[in-house]
């Protein structure tokens, strides 16, 4: 049996990013916890999973995304009702002491929740993970052009939705 991967290191280096990504995908803290745990259980059970992987972060994002999609399919209707989802959504940003910033973060959370999941995932990976379209296309297993257009559509919607508040705090 091959040696088990260094789970502590993997957690310390990647769990924060995976957590934020999953929270943005699932919009639910309990689901995020479940998927994060599932990912680490998979890593522990299959020590060879990471052997030969060059970009650990991208690989783990892909693993997490697939696990989240599986979970949401199992859970059923939540993903389909975007409006309801936006109302229920958990804050994806850290709280701020500045009221304007806090208002922008809350509005951004709601606006992200209103995006279709595939656009939301794209926006997250591009803006907060800093991945290239090529890398994102690899993570999500979609064509490069699809990745770029999804990002553009998602960003335009966010811009439109957040414009008044953004103009205020700019």
């Amino acid at each position: 049996m091959p040696p088990s991967p260094d789970l502590e290191r993997l957690y310390d280096e990647h769990a924060g990013a995976i957590f934020a990504f999953l929270l943005n995908v699932t919009r639910n803290e309990a689901d995020t916890r479940d998927v994060l745990q599932e990912v680490f259980i998979k890593l522990a059970r299959q020590p060879k999973l990471l052997s030969g992987v060059r970009e650990e972060r991208a690989f783990l994002m892909r693993l997490s995304h697939n696990a989240a999609i599986d979970l949401m399919r199992r859970r059923g209707t939540r993903e389909r009702n975007h409006e309801q989802l936006a109302v229920e959504s958990t804050g994806v940003f850290a709280p701020s002491t500045d009221p304007d910033e806090q208002a922008f973060r809350e509005a951004s959370t709601l606006a992200l929740g209103e995006l279709p999941p595939d656009q939301r995932v794209m926006v997250h990976l591009k803006l907060w993970e800093g991945l290239t379209f090529e890398a994102i296309a690899g993570v999500l297993e979609i064509p490069l052009n699809t990745a770029a257009s999804r990002y553009r559509y998602g960003l335009d919607k966010l811009r439109e939705r957040l414009r008044p508040l953004y103009e205020e705090i700019k």
């Binding site: 957590f19 929270l23 522990a44």
Partner: peptide
């Protein structure tokens, strides 16, 4: 606008999850 969004810090993973998740995995 993209830069403004990027500047927003994301929530951090709760501290107590680390021990729980690693324990469960092992």
């Amino acid at each position: 606008f993209e830069k403004q969004l990027q500047r927003q810090p994301l929530r951090a993973v709760p501290d107590h999850w680390r021990a729980e998740i690693l324990r469960e995995a092992k």
